[in-house]
């Protein structure tokens, strides 16, 4: 009886505690909604009733948002023949295989330069950003914490070597290093992730090293040393747990910049290669049709902005919770 209670209790308590926490931080909760929604949509994209994001159809090229089209049938090459007006009676001669009745299709956000459905491209495109975001974040944190710990805790020659390398990395401003890496490796999703990781690792190592330095001289570390624990144990059992909370903040910050990096690289044609969709390539496509169909670029741009704001607000709120002093401002 007693054990049943204690088995049941903690989980329920955790849910309740999370709920209270979210209610006490409405701004944080609000910023989480779009982020979680995007993640869910990205995860279940294959299950959603949307068309193939790469399915081109020039007859609905630059179809405006909120319009519908009729798929009348197939032509000789097997492509859909679509009539963009609501006139299912009209049949071009190219139709060899006719649908009866014609399939009605909604283009909520319109179609792009190749007549692909922008909604389905946005949904499928979120997967790339998500993948890179998660993968790169995990990699950056692991690498940076490891080297930051080594440099900060061991000091001396190890610190010297690591930090000189970091300095070299930091000599290339902003995205330059990522661009160079992409140039050498060639554009692709994996390479973009590698470029993003390598270019943000130096800054992160420097950050974690700084944090380790402040922890290293703390009394409890000194005490552990006096107790005769070896360096490895102290590094991972004493120092690391105290740097841990910062990882949350860093992850939120990194998520924002990785997300913007990947979109930006795809936008200038150095990231994901067509026809695969991500939000940057959709923007890139829309950039060429600013006058013809501004709606193409509007969708991904708004989504990116909303998510960037949410990530930023989330990072801000987390930081406020972790260091309450500054939240008074």
């Amino acid at each position: 009886m007693h054990s049943a209670l204690s088995l049941d209790h903690p989980a329920g308590q955790r849910v309740r505690r999370t709920a209270t926490f979210l209610r006490e931080h409405p701004v944080l909760s609000a910023s989480l909604v779009p982020i979680i929604l995007t993640i869910i949509i990205a995860l279940i994209a294959p299950l959603l009733p949307v068309t193939d994001p790469n399915r081109a159809n020039l007859s609905v090229r630059y179809l405006p948002p909120l319009s519908e089209a009729y798929i009348l049938g197939k032509d000789r090459l097997g492509n859909d023949v679509v009539h963009p007006e609501s006139n299912p009676e009209f049949f071009p001669s190219s139709v060899v295989e006719r649908y009866e009745p014609p399939i009605r299709k909604h283009y909520v956000l319109g179609a792009d330069s190749l007549g692909r459905d922008i909604v389905s491209r946005l949904i499928w495109g979120s997967r790339v950003s998500l993948m890179i975001g998660i993968f790169a974040n995990v990699a950056v944190v692991l690498i940076s914490v490891f080297f930051g710990l080594l440099a900060g805790y061991l000091g001396g020659r190890v610190d010297g070597v690591i930090m000189r390398l970091v300095d070299i990395g930091l000599a290339f401003p902003g995205l330059l290093l990522a661009l160079l890496i992409l140039t050498v490796l060639g554009p692709s999703v994996i390479n973009m992730a590698v470029a993003v990781i390598l270019s943000s690792v130096p800054l992160n190592i420097r950050f974690f090293r700084g944090q380790v330095l402040t922890v290293r001289n703390a009394k409890y570390v000194e005490a552990a040393r006096l107790l005769g624990y070896n360096n490895l144990r102290i590094m991972f059992r004493e120092v690391l747990p105290n740097v841990m909370p910062l990882i949350i903040t860093v992850t939120a910050l990194n998520a924002t910049s990785f997300f913007i990096f990947t979109a930006g690289f795809s936008l200038i044609g150095m990231g994901l290669q067509p026809p695969d969709p991500d939000w940057g390539t959709i923007m890139s496509d829309g950039l060429r049709a600013l006058y013809e169909q501004p709606a193409v670029i509007l969708g991904p741009t708004i989504l990116i902005s909303v998510l960037a704001i949410c990530f930023n607000v989330l990072g801000d709120e987390v930081q406020k919770i972790l260091s309450p002093r500054e939240s008074q401002l």
Partner: peptide, 12 residues
């Protein structure tokens, strides 16, 4: 202001 990426501002 600082949350919206520069290229999004540019597009808008």
């Amino acid at each position: 202001m600082l949350s919206i990426p520069g290229f999004a501002v540019a597009v808008f």
